[in-house]
Design a protein around this nucleic acid. Structure first.
Lengths: 226, 226
DNA sequence: GCCGCACGGATGGTATACCATTCTGGCGGG
DNA sequence: CCCGCCAGAATGGTATACCATCCGTGCGGC
C-alpha cells in the first residue's frame, strides 16, 4: 500500500516524495530555487508532472510558490513554526482524546508495539529510522481517533513540521521524558483516560517547543553555514 | 483577452474560483464528472491550467480525484461532514480563545460591525450575501487570533463546508439563536473572556450540527431531485 | 441465449513547443 | 564613478500533440 520506497514509483506523487526527501534531508537547502527545467531533466521526467509535484510541496508548506518566479525551498521563521505547533497541539489533543474513546484494542496494541520498538531502537538504531517510526506512531494515534478529516489535517501538519522536528531533535537530551510520554500515552489509551492522554501529549509538545526554540537560538548565534 | 471575464483574473486560481462557484451553487451537482477537455473548452482555457484548478478543488475536498478516471464533484456523507465539523469546532474554539487575547481593538470593532450588518440584512437582504458576510465574519475572528497557520487551516475547513452549510442553512428557523451567538462572541471579545467566547462558538456549532443532520435526514426521505 | 473477448472511442497522463514576464549584464550618458 | 536603460537569456505559464489506460459495445463461440 504505502510505498515508503521512494525510488521509482507513480510519477506525480513519486516525484513529490523524492523532492520532499531531498528538502527534508537538506540536500535542497532553504532558499534554493526549484527551477522546473533543471529538476525535470535531473529526475528524468517532463516539466508537467514535476510542476504538479512542486505544487503538492507548496501545499504542504515545504516550498514557497511565487507567481512568475522560481519556487524556493521554504525557510519558516521561529514565530511561524511556533504557530504551526500551536495548531498541531490542538489537533493532537483532540485526536488523543477521541482515540481514548474510539480506538479498538487492536489499534492500541499496534501503537503499544510501536512505542516498544521506538524505545528499543532509541539507543541502538539509526536516528532517522527512529524518527520515522515516531512519526508513524503519532499518526497511528490520530488514525485511532476514527475521524478521517482530522487524520488528514493532522498528517499535513506533521509533514509540514517534519524538517524542523528532525533538525531540533538533534538538540534533545530529553530522551527519557519523550519515552515516558510515549508510555503514558499507551497507558492512557489502555485505561481509556483522555485526561492522562492529553497531559502526556501536552508534555510531549512542550518538549518540542523547547527543542525548536533552542534550535533557532543556536542558529541565530552561529549565523552562516550551508 | 477574448473571453468574458467580469470577476476573476488570474487563470489558475480564477478557473478554480469559477468551478468552485458552479459546484457550490449546484450547477455542477455532486457526482458529475469534470472532464478536462470539455470544461477547458467551455471556459476558454487549455487543459493545463484547468487541470491545476481541478487539483486545487480536490485539495479543498470539493471534487474527488481518481487515478486515470474523470474527477467527480464530491458528495460527502453525513458522517464525513460531521467529522469535518468536529475538526472545525476545535479550530474555531482555539482561534476564538486566542482572539480574546490577541485581537486588537480595531479588529474587534470590525467584527462588531460585521455582526451588526448581518443582523440588519438578515431580514431584508439576499440570503447568499448574508451567508457570505457571515463566513467573512467568522474568518475575521480567526484572523484576529494572529496565527497564520490556524487562519489558513480554518479557512480551508470553512471553504470545504461551504456548500453543506449553505444547503442546511435553508432549514434553519433558528435565526434568533444564531444572532444571539454572534452578539455573545463580540461581547466576549470586548471583555477578553475566552470562556464566554468558547461557549458562544459551541452553541453556534451545535446549531450547525443540528441543521446539517436534519438536512441529511430530509434528503434521505425525499430521495431524488437534480 | 448468455458469457467472454476484442476492438475502437473516450479520457486522464505525459511530453514538448510556444508565449509572456522577469532577471541580468553591459553599455552609454550624466 | 555611478545610475539608468535596453537587449538577450532565463524561466514560469500556457497551449497542444502524443501516449496509456479504461470502458462500452458488439460480435462470435459455447
Amino acid at each position: 500500500m504505502t510505498d515508503t520506497d521512494p525510488s521509482e514509483r507513480t510519477f506525480p506523487a513519486g516525484i513529490a516524495a523524492r523532492l520532499r526527501r531531498e528538502i527534508l534531508t537538506g540536500e535542497l537547502p532553504p532558499g534554493s530555487p526549484l527551477k522546473e527545467r533543471d529538476h525535470a531533466l535531473r529526475l528524468g521526467v517532463s516539466r508537467t508532472p514535476l510542476r504538479e509535484a512542486v505544487r503538492m510541496l507548496g501545499q504542504e508548506g515545504l516550498v514557497t510558490l511565487r507567481p512568475l518566479r522560481s519556487p524556493i525551498v521554504a525557510d519558516p521563521s521561529l514565530a511561524e513554526v511556533l504557530d504551526e505547533i500551536a495548531v498541531l497541539r490542538q489537533l493532537e489533543l483532540f485526536s488523543g482524546g477521541l482515540a481514548c474513546v474510539n480506538a479498538s484494542d487492536a489499534e492500541i496494541g499496534t501503537i503499544a508495539q510501536m512505542v516498544d520498538r521506538i524505545a528499543e531502537q532509541h539507543a541502538t538504531g539509526d536516528k532517522l529510522d527512529v524518527f520515522d517510526l515516531d512519526m508513524r506512531m503519532h499518526r497511528a494515534i490520530a488514525d485511532a481517533a476514527h475521524n478521517a478529516a482530522l487524520s488528514r489535517t493532522y498528517g499535513e501538519y506533521l509533514a509540514r513540521l517534519w524538517r524542523i522536528r528532525f533538525l531540533s531533535a538533534r538538540e534533545r537530551a530529553d530522551a527519557p521524558r519523550v519515552l515516558a510520554d510515549h508510555r503514558d500515552m499507551v497507558a492512557a489509551l489502555r485505561d481509556r483516560d483522555p485526561d492522562r492522554m492529553m497531559a502526556a501529549i501536552g508534555s510531549h509538545l512542550d518538549g518540542l517547543v523547547r527543542n525548536v526554540t533552542r534550535h533557532f537560538q543556536r542558529r541565530e548565534e552561529g549565523p552562516d553555514q550551508p
